[in-house]
Structure formats: structure tokens, C-alpha cells
């Protein structure tokens, strides 16, 4: 793949993941507002999300979208704001994305299993 094509694909993937995030963030905010009515406890969260395949899938998609979207943005920020050579910019951004993905999916799977799923 040519560099132009790769860079254009990154740009496209960032816009596509942003549209997934826009929906996911909205759902997430509404859920938070609904959930904090009358206090918030760990037991309550586990009771709602734990063992629930639909919530696990939702948060899984959310995590993947964020782990794709944010590092592409960080790559742009590093390119503009630091004198780092491109190789380091790409490596740092990729590491950041892999970190987000691992931590996010780990949290989703732990919560799912806490509910006995």
C-alpha cells in the first residue's frame, strides 16, 4: 500500500470510529444518568452489566472504537506538537492504542465474568 493510501485509510477509519463513538458516548451518558438515580454502588453495576452479553458486546465495540480512534488522533497531535521523527510518532501511537485495547477489553471481560457469565 502506498503511503498516501495508508494515511488516507487512517483518516477514514478515524472518522468511521468517531461516528461509532458518537452513538456509544450518547448511550453511555444516558446509562450513567439513569444509573446514578438514587445512588451508585458496585453491586448495582455488576447486577446490571455483569453476565449480560448485550452489554459486554456494546462495551466491547465501544472499547475497540476508542482504541482505534484515539491513537490516530494522538498521532496527529504528536506530528504537530513534537519534533519526533515519524517512526517514533507511529510507534508511540500504536503502543498507546494497544494499551487502550488491552485495558479496555480486560475491564469489559472482568465485569462480564463478575456477573457469573
Amino acid at each position: 500500500m502506498s503511503a498516501e493510501k495508508l494515511q488516507t485509510c487512517l483518516w477514514l477509519v478515524q472518522r468511521i470510529s468517531a461516528s461509532v463513538l458518537a452513538v456509544a458516548v450518547a448511550v453511555h451518558l444516558i446509562t450513567i444518568i439513569a444509573a446514578v438515580q438514587g445512588g451508585l454502588t458496585a453491586a448495582e453495576i455488576i447486577a446490571r452489566v455483569g453476565g449480560n452479553g448485550a452489554w459486554a458486546a456494546f462495551y466491547g465495540v465501544f472499547v475497540v472504537a476508542a482504541a482505534v480512534h484515539a491513537p490516530i488522533g494522538v498521532r496527529t497531535v504528536l506530528q504537530e506538537m513534537t519534533p519526533l521523527p515519524n517512526f517514533f510518532v507511529n510507534a508511540l501511537s500504536a503502543l498507546f492504542g494497544i494499551g487502550l485495547l488491552i485495558m479496555g477489553l480486560d475491564a469489559v471481560s472482568i465485569l462480564y465474568r463478575l456477573g457469573g457469565g
Binding site: S2, A3, E4, K5, Q7, T8, T76
Partner: peptide, 12 residues
């Protein structure tokens, strides 16, 4: 289009 596509082109 190739000339304006990369990191230094319109997408920036």
C-alpha cells in the same frame, strides 16, 4: 489526488 492525499496534504 495522490499529491494532496498524504499527512502533509488536505487531510491535515
Amino acid at each position: 489526488l495522490r499529491a494532496v492525499a498524504g499527512d502533509d496534504g488536505c487531510l491535515a
